[in-house]
Structure formats: structure tokens, C-alpha cells
Design a protein around this nucleic acid. Sequence first.
RNA 1: GUGGCCGUAGCUCAAUUGGUAGAGCCCCGGGUUGUGGUCCCGGUGGUUGUGGGUUCGAGUCCCAUCGGUCACCCCA
Length: 415
Amino acid sequence: MKKFRAPRGTHDVLPSEFPLWNRVVHTAEEVCARYGYEPITTPGFEDTELFVRTSGAGSDIVRKEMYTFDDLGGRSLTLRPEATAPICRAYVEHGLHRRPQPVKLYTIAALYRYDTPQKGRYREHHQLSVEAIGSSEPALDAEVIQLYTELLRRLGIESYTIQLNSIGDRECRPAYIERLRAWVADHEADLDDETRQKAEVSPLRIFDTKNRDVSRALEAAPKIGESLCGPCSEHFARVRKFLDAYGVPYELVSTLVRGLDYYTRTTFEFVSNALGAQDALVGGGRYDYLVEQIGGPPTPALGFGAGIERLLIAIQETGAVAEGREIDVFFVCHDDDERREVLPLLAELRRHGLRAELDYAGRSDKGQVTQANRLKAKRIVIVNSVDGLVRERDGRPDWNISLLDRSGFVEKMRA
RNA sequence: GUGGCCGUAGCUCAAUUGGUAGAGCCCCGGGUUGUGGUCCCGGUGGUUGUGGGUUCGAGUCCCAUCGGUCACCCCA
């Protein structure tokens, strides 16, 4: 018989992992709600063209990471590799641009990328995506970034650095890219093949190299920051001032770019040394042309994606553990007569919000008590006909209780 | 897609120069105990990731493949 395993790069979230998982998810939802972001859910797959057009044919996602398939009706669909384009699609499709702007949305969803798995990188992973659509205000950039610092604070994650940059817009970036390509052409001898190729496909990313010599050579290359047009430059300056006002520390990284084509102006990443090579806790930025690119009105926007699995790794690095909810009452029964006596009480306790259990594994009396202790039951009720011997977990003396008075029973178990 | 390391019970690991699989934990039962977390006894559980090959014989050697892990690439 073939043994099945979770497909490569995917993983199960087991019950023992849920307390921590839920802590992350619930905290994220609460923080988003306080900042005025509303939940939205989009389909797990979309028209392939949506991602190709927005991420860019030259992006790694489109070139080699999409789970694309034809459905039985001949449609080309793709498991969503990122959440921003789908949310913008929904924004346009449902006329959210007619609502008061900006529209602030968030979602927590599984994303799919066909990539080689390693620590913190999975083929199916989950992201908190926060998107603020319909405003170019620098204060909104600062809000989105500060929101995430607040989430990290609530989760107890302190060891990280915020990297910030601006990559310009369609006014200033094309001219800059021309200058950069020209510089690369003049300095080919000092660069490697990889860098020369990147200059063609994705010129902004040439700075992201591990080659020391290339890196040194590139220090003399023109940087986007020096080439920003007036409006972009002013926007970036105001973003920084607002971040300062929030008291959010950041470092300017002139080589920080994004892998997707739709980004403009502000880009940022939070990096953590707890994560190994995949060190980004979150990545995001502005995408002022994305909405109109998919058929909506010109609509400035920004957002970020934060990997839930990476947050979990970072939290575990802090040594934090989350415990599941304890059992309130565990009934120990010998036979069906006693079970019939107990079942109504079990239902009654549960109806009143208590977590009550009994044995379903055919355990011996001793085994049942062991099980109760294992579940950390606060109270064990050892049934003996219509009475029960109540044993307190905290060591207080045992006492007897009647099983006949239901409401009285609930009262005493709540005490 | 590329490279390094790794792959024995649910978990953590052992198995002398290749000789035919074991321990602890967990789980179940029994004993002791205050019908309890200690202790003692017993039990369930593996075609050694999978498929080939070398050999009288392979967990141990070789090849392939799958998976894990770390790194490159890129990112969450």
C-alpha cells in the first residue's frame, strides 16, 4: 500500500500547533480591525491572465512559480501566488472605488508558489495581506508600516529591522532605468553574466547580488534615490517624516526593490535574523497603477504581505508557547448505566460553556483517570451510581455530589 | 532549476570490518498507591522512504527516485 504524505512544500497544522497559530491570526485580525481595515476573502484561484499582467511576465512568480491549470471548461486558471492583484480585482469588480476612499482591506489566505522549499519558504503558505486602496497620502504609507510594527509588538517579536526605499513612478523610473542600463553597458567588464542578464529583464534587481566584486562595482552605479522626480521625492520625504512622528525606526536601503512589476514609490521589508536565509517577515509597498492596469480607474494604493509561517518561526525564537484550553470536568464511568446518568449532565455543562469530557477509548477506570490527568482536567467526577466522587486537580479534598440535580450540578462545577 | 548534508517504530535515537532490527519516550493492560501525575511488570507497534543493483547474505556498499534540511535564486 502506498503511503501518502503531504505534497512537497506543504504542511499540516496539527491541533498542538493551533494555539500559537490562532494567537497570530486573532491578533492580526484585532490589530487590523483597530486600524479600520475590513476583512475580505477572494477565491483560491483566478484567471491566469490576472497574475501575468500585474506581476509581470519577467517576474519570478510568472516565469517559474505558478500553479497553472486548465479547468474542464478550458479556462486557464492559477492558484493565487499573491493576494494583492485578486483584492484589487475584487475592488474593481464590485465598484468599491465608489465608496469613500481609501478602502482598507485585509485577508489571511493560503498562497501557492512552485519553489524549492526551505526554512520559512513553502509551496503553500499563508499570508496576512493588508491593502489600503484609493489614496496616495504618505501618511497612509506610514500607517500601514506602523500597523505591522504594532502587530509584531503584540506578538512579542522585537528583533527585526525595517528597510525602506522608494523606487519612483512612471515619470522618473524609465529615465533612471535607461541611465542604469547605460552604466551597465559601460562597465560590463566589472560585472558578471547574471548581472548583465538582470539588467535586461529586471534592472532594478541587479543590486541584489551576493557577488562581492559586482557589489563593489555597483557602488558607483546610479541609484534610484538620486533620480526620483520631484513628486516622488517629496512623497518619500513625507513618508519618512510620518514614520519619525510615529517613532518607527527604519533604515534606508537604496537597493531594496520588489520582485513584482506593479510596485511604485515606497517599498519596504521587515527582516529578522531569526529566519535564516528567508529573512523577510513582511514585504510590501505602493502599487499606484495596479488598479487601472486591471481595468479600474486610476487609483493609488499600497499594501503588504506577511508570512504567517514566518511569524510563527519568529515567535518560537522568542521562546513563547501557547497552551490549549483545559478540560473543566472529566467523567469516569464504569458502564452504560452510569453513562446514561452522565450524558445529560455532559450536555448541560457544555451548554453552559464548560468543557466536559468522558472516555471513548474503552479505558479501564485507572486508564480513564490517567486520561483525565493527561487532559489537565480541573475536576474529575468518578461516577458511582447516582453519586459522583469529585476530585479536584488543585489538591483540595475530594467531595461527593449528586448526579440527580442537574442545575445544581452545573452550579457546583462552575464554582 | 542548481549544489551540500540527511532519511531505522508515532517521537528521539542505537545496531561491532556487510550476517538477517533494538532502546528510551509515547500508547494500552496489570501491580503498588489515597480508584491520581511516582515506581514496578507486561504488551501493541518497523517489508530499515521507495525501486533497482553488487553479494551466499545489505539498515550497513553502488545507482536512481521521492522526501527532509541548509544554501544559491527569489521572496512571505
